[in-house]
Amino acid sequence: MYTTDMYESMIAETVTISGYNNDNILAYFARPLHTKPRGSMILIHHLPGWDEWYKEVTRKFAYHGYLAICPNLYHREGHGDPVDIASKVRSDGGIADDQAMADVQGSYNFLQNLPYMDSKVGVFGTCSGGRHAFLAACTLQGISAAVDLWGGGITQNNNSQEPWYSKQPVAPIEYTKDLSCPLLGLFGQEDASPSPEQVSAHEQELKTHGKDYEFHMYPDAGHGFFYYDRPVYRQAQAVDGWKKVFAFLDKTLG
């Protein structure tokens, strides 16, 4: 627990990692300097892109004692205002799951190569990043905890008639049997993607396969209720949600 007499220090900076296809992509990396890291987190950004909110959250995890890295999954699209790049990505049907998972794997490899690395690794994501976090926990090796915040599109794959079908050809729910770590999910009851019905379907699948999970459905909250810079912000639910995130990581990563 934090007390005001503690000395604190952290470093946060842009680094380069090797991702999908051995491409060099940028990532934002933060770590505490005053204490041994208690765990490591890979943050998978949302559809609005590699933006200020995700940089802040990366530092938030470092503040709480974690090595935290957030790769720019849209690096290959070019550089500019995050919203402009995100809008282009959305118009192109998002990014391919294989590419995203390889970039997450690259982030994992970056952490493993750090000379002071000695901790478990978790994944965290919101919106499309929540979907990616679940995919990572099911398809990558070495993940010890997964946090999916309102990840949409878990129960369905792309319409096969769409040109970008091949980017997300498998509904993540189909990988549930392969989930390799505890999962925390936070959702808003007023969200339509994922809707409460879709969350229930995912929960049923987790039960069927006997997985270790913890889902919370917040009333009076919709999609993105942690985003303090957007009208969808719900203060009480967000404060409680963050407590649940860190309690979950305390239990699963140490």
């Binding site: 559809l47 995100a86 959305r90 339509a192 993607s193 999609h223 957007r230 009208p231």
Partner: peptide, 14 residues
């Protein structure tokens, strides 16, 4: 490009 999705800025769920 047209989408029905979460907005970046508007005070709307979708």
């Amino acid at each position: 490009n047209i989408s029905y999705d979460h907005p970046f800025k508007a005070d709307l769920g979708y």
